[in-house]
Design a protein around this nucleic acid. Structure first.
Lengths: 229, 229
DNA sequence: CCAAAAGTGTTCAGCTTACACCCATGA
DNA sequence: TCATGGGTGTAAGCTGAACACTTTTGG
């Protein structure tokens, strides 16, 4: 193969993943204790370097799979961080990815074995480099998406109750919603299937389970429908 | 300096700029005829490689300055394209930037000398690699921003008329707006200063010039105001 | 029987949209 | 004087926000 760009310098390219999960009524992030220099022992996002023969998206998927054992994670490129001195080890450009997963799909052992753990978004420690900045951006992206795309369902279990869904949104937007208005808006979209089953785990009366109806959602999309919460 | 990441491969990182301009009532893009291999002679976006000692943002500014002679351009990172085979010359990751400028600030000679020219967005030719995809994304970004941020004023001259502003928005959204509603909405935001001067170039009656009042806009922002059109 | 969470409708305000005519002026 | 583009107000519909009580049932 002829190389055309030989006069230009190459640069290390990394991936960092901001992974959101929803657990026990709380929005959490997956954080790692770094086991290599520089900054060994400090807290960081999950990351890795992009290989010569893989796309950015594939690199992100590989890194996520390595750490979670999951391959069907919601994944979206977030932003690329390229300050010259952002990594004290060497010049590294980092492409940040935004990921959502259902914590209950995860093998807790697998995660712990890799030194990762979940941290509530209000209790984030100081992370290395510009990782806290990345998280800020990811959180904004989460808010925008949650308003306009049905991505909340990527965090909840397949079967969820309306109080759970509302709790998730209240955590994402850090404010309370009126439950009558919230339920009305969600149900009016007609993208949820009500199940006969109830979740009795958090009340005596029990709350009906719902499922996100992706087929119907996709059909409505084609008809010009817009998700809006 | 100790190198920590020696086992990882480096990759070429490029910048590509999607540059919007507003001229003669039309939304245009700045396009280049490529003067190096591969794909010499084909049409492309303005681009270049990131140097070892410059940030991504600075690389984008450098490349824009080189081509336009301007340094106060609206500039925003758009997305990073990283398919392995996107550039047939070699593996290159490209960070796309989204830029807006006032065509009348530009020295037409300077631009022409570099082989660049403006193309109306509906008459875009086939560009190299994934550049057309980048433009699609940039156009979506433009639409989102134009709705929620006062970026239309980056494209218009300092003094502009309301019919001009409306024309710009109609071109961005490819649809007509009701002029009464449009004017009302814009003026209600109270971020335009009406001048005494009129533009008589496109009608006998003449249309009043306005200026975007950035000071006032910034003050309103701090008070929780949101631009919305 | 009672505590605790689930579920349910209506009203009002504000915003968006639709819509048509007069004004100023240069040619 | 007339053709051309600039400028103006109002009514109807829709959407978002506020608001309080009944239901269910395990303990």
């Amino acid at each position: 193969m002829i190389k055309y760009y030989t006069e230009h310098k190459k640069i290390l390219v990394a991936i960092d993943c901001i992974i959101f999960g929803w657990d026990d009524g709380q929005l959490k992030l997956l954080i790692l204790k770094r086991d290599f220099e520089p900054a060994m022992g400090e807290k960081s996002l999950i990351g890795g370097f992009v290989k010569e023969d893989e796309s950015l998206d594939n690199a992100a998927r590989r890194i996520l799979y390595l750490l979670t054992g999951l391959s069907d994670i919601y994944l979206e490129q977030l932003y690329t961080y390229g300050e010259v001195l952002r990594d004290p080890g060497e010049r590294v450009i980092s492409v940040a990815y935004f990921a959502l997963l259902k914590i209950q799909d995860l093998d807790p052992e697998h995660v712990r074995k890799h030194g990762a753990h979940w941290v509530h978004i209000s209790k984030l420690p100081e992370l290395i480099f510009d990782h806290n900045v990345m998280i800020q951006k990811a959180f904004k992206r989460l808010r925008r998406r949650a308003k306009n795309e049905p991505i909340g369902f990527e965090l909840l279990p397949k079967k969820f109750t309306l109080p759970q869904l509302q709790g998730l949104y209240e955590e994402i937007y850090r404010k309370k919603f009126d439950n009558r208005n919230f339920r009305k808006k969600v149900l009016d979209m007609q993208i949820l299937k009500k199940l006969d089953e109830k979740d009795k785990s958090s009340s005596k009366k029990g709350a009906y389970f719902y499922k996100f109806d992706k087929i119907k959602y996709d059909r409505l999309l084609r008809e010009g429908f817009n998700f809006n919460l």
